[in-house]
């Protein structure tokens, strides 16, 4: 088994996704939430790539285009997310997610 099997990549992606999910839910600091989201996105990219290896020809190649766009979107999202974090910090003077409970019940 010299070649890299897609299943291995999938398993790694699943584990990374779970860790990213745990980070988002378990940490109270807003920065960590954003970092967890980045982890999850990376796991998804990895999953795309593993799928692309199972497809022949140009279909497989398209599996590599999706992560490109995902990276671009992740960049935009990080940008806006951080801007919002800044403005939220300005109004709350705290980065604790539990402090933001003004949503409607």
């Amino acid at each position: 088994m010299g070649d890299l099997q897609p299943i291995q990549l999938q398993v790694l992606a699943a584990l990374l996704f779970a860790i990213g999910l745990a980070t988002v839910m378990a940490r109270r600091n807003l920065f960590f939430v954003l970092m967890g989201v980045e982890l999850m996105l990376n796991a998804a990219n990895l999953s795309f790539l593993s799928w692309s290896r199972t497809m022949p020809g140009s279909v497989g190649l398209e599996g590599q285009l999706a992560p490109i766009f995902a990276i671009a979107v992740a960049a935009a999202e990080a940008c806006v997310g951080l801007a919002m974090l800044l403005s939220v910090f300005r109004s709350r003077e705290s980065l604790d997610t539990d402090a933001f409970d003004r949503m409607k019940e």
């Binding site: 988002v24 839910m25 539990d98």
Partner: peptide, 17 residues
């Protein structure tokens, strides 16, 4: 059921998960 309508972020997320 009302507990699902929590304003706290993490709880909300937890329920979605």
């Amino acid at each position: 059921v009302r507990m699902a309508q929590t304003p706290r972020l993490r709880w909300n997320l937890g329920l979605s998960v």
